[in-house]
């Protein structure tokens, strides 16, 4: 367990401690303020180069990482994999060697293979590697921004600031994660973060979309979705990942929706204070009804907005962090 991500890589939230997560959330809060200024840019990473390397399509993660790097004054190299030598059959390792030869400080990387960022981090020890999603493994910045959003909303309701509450707000918080747990790296990162912060996590999914090793995750498995909704403080929805073959794990999308979709009827079961989250992109009408996604419980837009400050915090701590203690 690492107690801080300062000066290190960020591959997975499963190997960082509560202290390290709280540190990112606190730093991100300072960057929220930077993002509210008229000049939303600080010179912190001037002269550093951050490469973004996305082997898998992405809208919000890529844009918010690049925005974050630019607001920290870093230079951003963005490799469009579709029009690069990758198409000529260049291996991941050679691509990494090529871009590190250009003198980069950090690589933000998304890859369809679980473990690819970890492989890269072993090849280039001097470059900070930040995982922006690898296969079905982890999506650590999503887990951090989800935790940040929960803390921000609950602290605001209590009339305080997130950094004043530390991780206290999470103690005893009941978080329900619903949907395609099996294929979801977001679920894995969320669970790592929420558990480290002290929340109780319950998952609910069709048995075919539960991972086979769920018993070792330390989460409760709910079989009655309606009952679980009534007990939840936070509901995290997941996208049904058709590109990873999720379609074959359920009889039909309509059946999935009727049993596990957060419909307008089911929204009424939620406690009035409950938050509804979704990492995006949403399949409206599949895992969530349009009216629920835009409704009073939803904090989905906040999640997107918090992507930039949280990723600024991650870049700041990993790239500017300096090695170890003074």
């Amino acid at each position: 367990m690492r107690t801080s991500i300062r000066g290190g890589d960020l591959i997975s939230l499963a190997d960082v401690s509560r202290e390290a997560i709280v540190e990112v959330l606190d730093v991100a809060e300072s960057f929220v303020e930077v993002n509210q200024r008229s000049i939303k840019k600080v010179p912190t990473l001037k002269g550093r180069v951050v490469a973004s390397l996305f082997y898998e399509e992405s809208t919000r993660t890529r844009l918010s990482f690049e925005t974050a790097a630019k607001r920290l004054s870093a230079d951003v190299l963005s490799l469009a994999v579709a029009s690069s030598s990758v198409k000529k059959g260049e291996s991941l390792r050679d691509t990494i060697s090529t871009i590190t030869a250009l003198g980069i400080d950090a690589v933000v990387m998304r890859h369809m293979a679980s473990g690819a960022p970890w492989q890269v981090s072993r090849v280039v020890p001097t470059v900070r590697v930040i995982n922006a999603g690898d296969g079905q493994h982890q999506h650590p910045t999503q887990g951090l921004l989800d935790a940040f959003t929960i803390r921000q909303v609950l602290a605001e309701r209590a009339g305080s600031r997130g950094s004043e509450t530390g991780s206290e707000i999470f103690h005893g918080l009941r978080i329900l994660i619903v949907g395609d747990i099996r294929h979801s790296r977001v679920a894995r990162s969320d669970i790592s973060a929420y558990q480290a912060l002290g929340a109780t996590v319950t998952v609910c999914a069709p048995p075919t979309l539960l991972p086979t090793d769920v018993a070792s995750w330390g989460v409760d498995v709910a079989t009655d979705f309606d009952d679980a909704l009534a007990k939840a403080d936070v509901v995290g929805l997941l996208r049904l990942q058709v590109e990873r073959g999720s379609g074959a794990f359920v009889p039909s999308l309509r059946e999935f929706t009727s049993l596990y979709g957060l419909t307008a009827e089911r929204e009424r079961l939620l406690p009035p204070h409950a938050l509804v989250m979704h990492p995006g992109p949403m399949n409206r009408g599949v895992e969530v009804d349009s009216s629920v996604a835009d409704g009073s419980h939803a904090v989905i837009e906040r999640q997107v907005a918090n992507g930039v400050p949280v990723r600024m915090a991650v870049l700041y701590l990993t790239v500017a962090g300096g090695e170890g203690d003074l």
């Binding site: 300062r6 730093v27 300072s30 010179p43 912190t44 990473l45 920290l72 300096g322």
Partner: peptide, 22 residues
């Protein structure tokens, strides 16, 4: 004002945790 993001020794020392700017 917190000047953590404007320091010229970023990377030379471990970063200082920023405080709020108002």
């Amino acid at each position: 004002l917190d000047v953590a993001f404007y320091r010229d020794d970023v990377g030379l020392h471990p970063v200082v945790e920023p405080a709020s700017t108002t």
